[in-house]
Design a protein around this nucleic acid. Structure first.
Lengths: 233, 233
DNA sequence: ACTTTTATGATAGTATTACTATTATTAACA
DNA sequence: TGTTAATAATAGTAATACTATCATAAAAGT
């Protein structure tokens, strides 16, 4: 993948664009490290400011609160995955192979250390998304934030992948439900493997993502293929 | 279902058993209402104490903190669902029909107002579990809490349902992964229908649970049935 | 009946969190 | 060179997440 791409978000969970300044980029870089290290609950702007040698007040000029920072990070992640899916599938003609590749990108998003943006460590960000992303939409403000466009990136990826499903079988009736289920499982199954192993057959080894991919491929294709579709009609 | 059943939890997320005293039961009853009303982040023991006409210090005698209270509520919920699954399936002979019924119990758990325990409103608790339950295991303490047995109830239900899958097709290689995925989707799809409708085909109507059940049944059975198994061997 | 234990209430206090406000300093820009 | 904008430094506030102490009342044990 090309170095130095730019991911555009379609909403403003920030007060001041963090990409445009040195301090802003430091906030992103270090918040990723610190949320991963402490967990979102223990993470505070004060600790972050200490880490980057700045002040709490300065961080607050970029993000209203830590929740909005998390929204920003998670949205960036989904936009980045969507970009990767597009990039990695655009010259695959066979719809089945294309969806396979997309699933692989989705499942292995945290694997290769191929930084697209200098100040974002996607491998650490992946761990944050796995552990914390459900917290961005499981709040009382979900409807208000949805109106602000905070979830457009995950919705776009879901729509994108659902279209790949329909390319295989336009008669399958639940493409979005299937994809949102798969997207979640792609993250949760390796997490379960590591922390709650009795909830899955996936083993917490180097092959965990590979095994997850096998499980998801089987799940997805058996659902899509079990709906009759006569392509000749 | 019989009124006045007793759900036993296999761990102690509490300091003092809340079921055994008037105040303890009030804590459970009112915390369910208040977490539902405010969301878990805005919920505090001070507000809860005010609601039940007691003091913060008294609530702290029952639960170390609000996180452990949530662990208790969510565990109770899973134990209750597991009880219901057992009860509603025990005289169904056909394994396929049995799993169907189990799925129905899982998906419609928040529907019927048939209180099994006087001081717990299962319909409100259902909403809490949908919106907040992932927060119980997405923390830095997940491994320590797992050792304490805090997740035994969800694991037991997963094992239970996975066994029903194996009763249909012992050759299916991912019964637990499939069930943990389905358990999650059973809650998230109706939530998406209500709050992030572009992530699912399910509509936020009275039939939402019914539609979710259709989606899940199709997903589950197509996966299980697409693995070859010769029962005559 | 009397003592001991236990549960609750009342009150106070602390460190941390999640902010907001003010002012000074420095860098950028016109 | 003067103006604007960004940051640092500092202070302050209300709420949160607790802990501690003591009094009282009810329940249990002897």
């Amino acid at each position: 993948m090309a170095t130095s791409i730019h991911i555009n978000l379609s909403h403003k969970s920030y007060l001041r664009e963090p990409e445009s300044t040195e301090l802003g980029r430091k906030i992103i870089t270090e918040s990723i490290k610190l949320i991963d290290a402490l967990g979102f609950e223990q993470f505070t702007f004060k600790k972050l400011a200490a880490e980057i040698g700045s002040t709490e007040a300065s961080v607050y000029r970029y993000f209203e609160n830590k929740h909005k920072l998390l929204v920003y990070l998670v949205s960036w992640y989904w936009a980045w995955v969507d970009y990767n899916v597009t990039f990695q599938t655009h010259n695959i003609q066979d719809p089945r192979q294309r969806l396979c590749r997309a699933l692989e990108v989705l499942t292995k998003a945290g694997q290769d250390d191929d930084p697209a943006v200098a100040y974002i460590d996607e491998r650490i960000l992946y761990r944050i998304v796995v552990a914390e992303s459900s917290k961005v939409y499981h709040t009382k403000e979900v409807d208000a934030e949805n109106k602000e466009g905070y979830f457009l990136e995950i919705k776009r990826l879901c729509r994108h992948l659902a279209q790949l499903v329909l390319d295989i079988n336009p008669a399958y009736p639940y493409p979005h439900a299937l994809i949102s289920t798969i997207m979640d499982a792609a993250h949760q199954q390796p997490y379960f493997a590591k922390h709650l192993p009795s909830l899955t057959e996936i083993k917490d080894t180097q092959r965990a993502k590979e095994e997850t991919l096998e499980f998801l491929k089987h799940l997805l294709f058996s659902a899509v293929d079990s709906v009759e579709y006569n392509s000749k009609q």
